[in-house]
């Protein structure tokens, strides 16, 4: 279908240019609707390959303190799931080609109804949905709604995912594989060099199981991290907490320029020729 092609088209052109993908993340509606749009626009204008956009949930168990705080603020502001989807539609109007994925907790999908949620997401120009708390075991609950609406179902692979599980995950996955590159929740904590050294083998085994691009996330916040992930065989990286933290700490008047210069550094690190 049409929207799934956005991931395909974008990853293909990056591949041809021998460049890594940069997929920044933010929470929709944070810190408020207008600023949120400006953050996302800055991401696109600074060369983001694709976007990962979170819907704020009251109980985000996969998220560390930075993204939790952002989510709680969005809910406190009274910004709704419906408004989040409308914001996505506005971004789609701004850029017809950038692939956009939603990071959502299952309860929001259940509350709206699986079919309706995917239909609405499709209408708003969403290309992929990653349900943070829906493992491959239970994924048949959403797969057909994804297919019907041309939305990729993104799945996570972790450093502890075993072979049999990996096989099951890639069977259901489309769009790309979200590699959680370190144990734990989202955040900007120190990385563990010993663990990072084992990622090469992990990425190789994913690549053997699926032709989908592998994007590494969780704890990726510097150009050096990005280079490390590329050297380990990843096709790109996802950065979330660092961006939310940067915006939270920035002088509001200079937020866009500070964010843009950070994003451009990440893009530059990923533009290095892939081996």
């Amino acid at each position: 279908m049409e929207s799934r092609d956005r991931y395909k088209a974008r990853f293909q052109s990056l591949q041809e240019a021998k460049q890594g993908a940069f997929m920044p993340f933010t929470v929709l509606g944070w810190p408020d609707e207008e600023t949120s749009f400006r953050i996302i626009k800055t991401m696109i204008d600074s060369g983001a390959s694709a976007l990962e956009l979170g819907i704020a949930f009251s109980d985000p168990v996969a998220d560390g303190p930075i993204i939790q705080a952002a989510a709680h603020k969005v809910i406190e502001n009274g910004f709704t799931v419906k408004q989040a989807l409308e914001l996505v539609a506005r971004v789609r109007k701004y850029d017809a080609d950038v692939p956009m994925g939603l990071l959502v907790y299952y309860n929001h999908i259940m509350a709206m109804g699986v079919e309706k949620f995917f239909e609405k997401a499709g209408e708003c120009g969403v290309d992929g949905v990653l349900v943070a708390d829906l493992p491959a075991e239970s994924s048949d609950e959403v797969l057909s709604a994804g297919t019907v609406n041309g939305i990729s179902t993104i799945f996570i692979v972790s450093p502890l995912t075993r072979e049999e599980r990996l096989a099951k995950i890639v069977e259901h996955a489309s769009g790309f594989i979200y590699l959680v590159s370190r144990l734990g929740v989202t955040g900007t904590d120190e990385r563990n060099a010993d663990r990072d050294s084992r990622l090469t083998a992990l990425i190789a085994s994913i690549k053997k199981a699926t032709p989908l691009p592998v994007l590494a996330g969780f704890g990726i916040s510097t150009p050096a991290h990005a280079e490390k992930m590329m050297a380990s065989g990843a096709d790109g990286v996802i950065t979330g907490s660092k961006i939310v933290d940067l915006v939270a700490k920035a002088d509001p008047a200079k937020m866009e320029s500070e964010l843009s210069s950070y994003l451009k550094q990440m893009v530059a690190a990923l533009n290095l020729v892939k081996v």
Binding site: V61, A62, Y106, A132, D133, L134, P135, A136, E137, S138, F155, I156, V157, S158, L160, T161, R162, R165, I169, V180, L183, G184
Partner: peptide
């Protein structure tokens, strides 16, 4: 997993992939 631990439509396993090995 051996089963999904359902009680009718309730129960199950709805956690991030990172928790599945545990």
């Amino acid at each position: 997993m051996r089963t999904l631990g359902k009680f009718g439509r309730y129960g199950g396993v709805y956690v991030p992939e990172t928790l599945m090995p545990a």
